[in-house]
Design a protein around this nucleic acid. Sequence first.
RNA 1: GCCGGAGUGGUGUAGCGGUCUGCACGUUGCUCUGAAAAAGCAAAGGUCCCAGUUCGACUCUGGGCUCCGGCA
Length: 308
Amino acid sequence: MLSMILSKKHNKLLVIVGPNASGKSDLAVKLAKKFNGEVLSADSRQVYKGMNIGTGKITKEEMQGIPHHLLDVASPKRRFSVAQFQKKAIETIKKIQKKGKLPILCGGTGFYIQSVVDGIVIPKVKPDWALRKKLEKKSCEQLYQKLKKLDPQRAKTIDKKNKRRLIRAIEIVLKTKKRIPPLKKKVMFDALIIGIKRDKEELKKRIRKRLLKRLKEGMIEEVKSLHKSGVSWKRLEELGLEYRYIAFYLQGKLNYKEMVTQLQKAIENYAKRQMTWFKKDKRILWVTTYKEAEKLVKKFLEEKRARQ
RNA sequence: GCCGGAGUGGUGUAGCGGUCUGCACGUUGCUCUGAAAAAGCAAAGGUCCCAGUUCGACUCUGGGCUCCGGCA
């Protein structure tokens, strides 16, 4: 076993990213065992209770005794958000560091990862669903004009055709009565970001294999019981991928075969979108094997602390 | 073999004698400030073949080929 190199006041953070089905959880556990770490999931769907097979959530056995955080912290009936994630994640990371252990942030939700690694400062305005519903009725053009009056600066850079973003921007200005400040970042951790690289065809095969396996393991039953426990079809569809397509199937909107092929396609597309996000980040060091990752982490931990 | 119907991007379709043929899905690339598995943007890609009519044909006419339905 490796001797402890980390002091109780280090600020190191290991991050593992990669597309769906690339083998992140597995790598995280292995590295956690090797380097005395604890894992934090950075997955916008694994935060929900009862969403296990469909999200590919790690099982107790697979954890092999390594503590995992930020799983099952919210109810699927309500919406969880990046800001909530960011707060919990930062708190947890600090706690792990204080124990002299290595926090390992592992997941596929790029935005969630970014919120922690870059420490983006998110305006402290909670979603106001009544307001959003009201604004939803207006056209993009109307919303854009409204924003332009309220905050010409923000209007310059916003995506004029994205209603959701326009509404959020207006929401912030209305609540704070101030213009939206330019994006601020507050980097708090000394992070090493490792990405798992997979060949396109290989990834598709892995997705397929995993999908069939999970169907056998009762993924459909899981969605059924979520619905029984009060999660509406609409909400399940909104949760995306597995939950969306299986909800379609259970409602008779798709037959079994259609459900499987369309879901496979949707997961592949999602994996592609994830890669679009990650490709931009030049800090990510891409690996294909555990050994490569181990070497990088070892070097990272031996480095003199850059900051602090 | 005969009679009918149809052939338009990868798939399903819409339309028109003369602006680059429209749409949906798919494909590819991209954006991202409390919904991010969300939301949004952009690009590539087509008129079955041959002849005729016409100033001009994806559109009309004839032939061929292929597919579908009915009769044999």
